[in-house]
Amino acid sequence: MGRLVSIPSTWELLVRDSRPALFVLPAGLIIGAITVYPILYVLWLSLHERLLIGNVSRFIGLENFARLWNDARFWNALGNTLYFTSVSVALEVVLGLAIAMLLHRAFKGKGFMRAIVLIPWAIPTVVAAKMWEWMYNGDFGVFNYLLGAHINWLGSAAWALNAAIFLDVWKTTPFVALLLMAGLHTIPKELYQAAKVDGASPWVTFLRVTLPLLRPLLLVVLIFRTIDAFRVFDTIYVLTGGGPGNTTETLSIYAYKVLFQTLQFGYGSTLAVTVFFLVGLITLVYVRALRAGTT
């Protein structure tokens, strides 16, 4: 009697086992070429003194990182970035949640309102920033006109970074509201009914039902927004270019100036690598929090 099942040869096994890997290979190569390679290259560059001006190129190990540590401009930019990120994200999440809950209720013209709310988010950032630059104009801007004030929005150290935050909040709150609205839809109505039967006040319902069930989505929103805000570039570049006196210079703007205005590729890469690791760190913290919440 012949065998009923043919036993595959080692070769066949090898091919069969590696088949999934082969299918993934093209995608892997593309991702490797466009993501992994540049990241590694920037890492490599960050260990070099490389200047197009003067045509300098030499390996200097961690010297750039030592320079970064003693660079007052870097710490200033980091401080600005952290301030911008924390204030704008906090405002966006609070306002976004309020708007989402408002729009979640049934009322006439709800569809229309939802569409209207999204407009700021739909406008390209550079265009919005240019618009706001005019509105902030200290001479004939609409904000000073409405307030009857003479505030030097973009030219004073006290206001400039806050002015950029207002713009970011205006522009991105709709995005947060949209995501949270989707989250609100997933909460079963029965839970609200049950809360009502138990005699819970609206505030208690919000704290005990809405917030816990929105938690995973809130964390996702926070991850998105924090990373985005941390890398902020176009908003501020258009509004102030980093001025006055570097009071609105964030890490991305500083990196841009070092990389593309003064063409110091080595030190600029060091800055970029630092931003990369900081963003990685933030993500790690959030993902941990997300996991802790789900298990």
């Binding site: 001006i53 003067g54 401009r73 030219g155 004073s156 150290a157 001025g243 006055p244 006196g245 570097n246 009071t247 100036k257 205005q261 003064t262 063409l263 110091q264």
Partner: peptide
């Protein structure tokens, strides 16, 4: 100077800081 763009970057920051009253 061959390094004018670098020098200018520094001047822009510090002159602006003086005008804005940061320094």
């Amino acid at each position: 100077s061959p390094y004018y763009v670098l020098l200018s970057q520094a001047m822009q920051s510090e002159f602006s800081a003086a005008l804005a009253g940061v320094k």
